[in-house]
């Protein structure tokens, strides 16, 4: 795809200004329903996350390298969607999703576990040998996460703030290709974060739409721009399941083209809590 068309896709963003924003008059109980719906969304994704992790870790334990490689990215998507909630459990977030940079001794660090530890084995060392214990641990942690989330009362400010937090994730680690540096499946995670952010926005949109229609329009436009850009990198145009091409195939110029709408979304969505009086 040409640079031009990508920039076009990526660049419907833009009208934002930093004027003192309007605050919607939102009654606290108006938040109850969207928060409850969001919890359903999270539990549904967790359900999928558990069953995908089962298949993924089984593949590792049974020594099916290619299968494990193929299941790596599609499994993570569910986690990436619900990160604002998953991250509330810092211990599990570390053992499930930490990256080698989080440890002074990098890959060799005995505390380094989870997806990215397995990623290193599967994609860098190209083996499942010796990874059974990491697979088992991951499964335990993911099950633990599910049961903890079930018992959790969702704090509305965390839920609403999650829309922006997910875009911050994209801006900080996805655009640079740091997240999945061995598998280069960053675009899957990217899509997961965007899905999760968009879901939150959609749920709370009715509460701000009347007060600030321009805001809603701008956010929708920028989500559409990001989606359109991502769509250029799908393996099969009509089949989301087929996922994305390697992040290595995304040129420097195109990576930069993501930054625009992602940053505007992060800026805009950072006002969502304020608009809802949270």
């Amino acid at each position: 795809m040409s640079r031009r068309s990508l920039l076009f896709a990526a660049s419907a963003f833009g009208l934002m200004t930093l004027q003192t924003p309007a605050q919607a008059d939102v009654a606290p109980d108006a938040l109850v329903e969207p928060v409850a719906e969001y919890k359903l969304y999270v539990l549904d994704n967790l359900d999928q996350f558990v069953s995908h992790t089962e298949k993924f870790t089984q593949a590792v334990e049974h020594g099916h390298l290619q299968r494990a490689q193929a299941l790596y990215a599609p499994t993570r998507v569910y986690y990436e969607r619900i990160e604002p909630i998953a991250e509330l459990f810092a211990d599990l977030d570390a053992s499930i999703d930490a990256r080698e940079d989080d440890y002074e001794n990098g890959v060799e660090d005995p505390d380094f576990t989870g997806f990215h530890r397995l990623e290193y084995g599967l994609f860098k060392e190209r083996t499942t040998q010796g990874f059974t214990s990491y697979a088992k641990r991951l499964m335990t942690d993911v099950n633990d996460l599910e049961s903890r989330v079930q018992g959790l009362t969702f704090p509305p400010a965390k839920v609403v703030g999650g829309a922006a937090a997910l875009m911050e994730e994209v801006a900080a680690t996805k655009v640079s290709g740091e997240e999945d540096r061995y598998s280069h499946t960053d675009l899957w995670d990217f899509q997961g974060n965007v899905d999760g952010s968009q879901k939150i926005f959609e749920l709370f949109k009715p509460l701000v739409a009347e007060e600030d229609p321009a805001f809603v329009q701008r956010v929708e436009k920028n989500f559409a721009a990001v989606e359109a850009t991502l769509a250029h990198y799908r393996r099969e145009a009509d089949n989301p399941e087929a996922g994305f091409v390697s992040y290595e195939k995304v040129s420097q110029a195109d990576r930069r083209a993501f930054v625009g709408p992602v940053t505007v979304l992060a800026e805009d969505l950072s006002t969502l809590r304020g608009k809802l009086g949270l």
Binding site: S11, F13, G14, M16, L18, R256, V259, G260, P261, T263, V264, A266, E267
Partner: peptide, 9 residues
């Protein structure tokens, strides 16, 4: 930077 999201990187 805060005033130029989407415009400047």
């Amino acid at each position: 930077i805060k005033h130029t999201p989407g415009l400047l990187m």
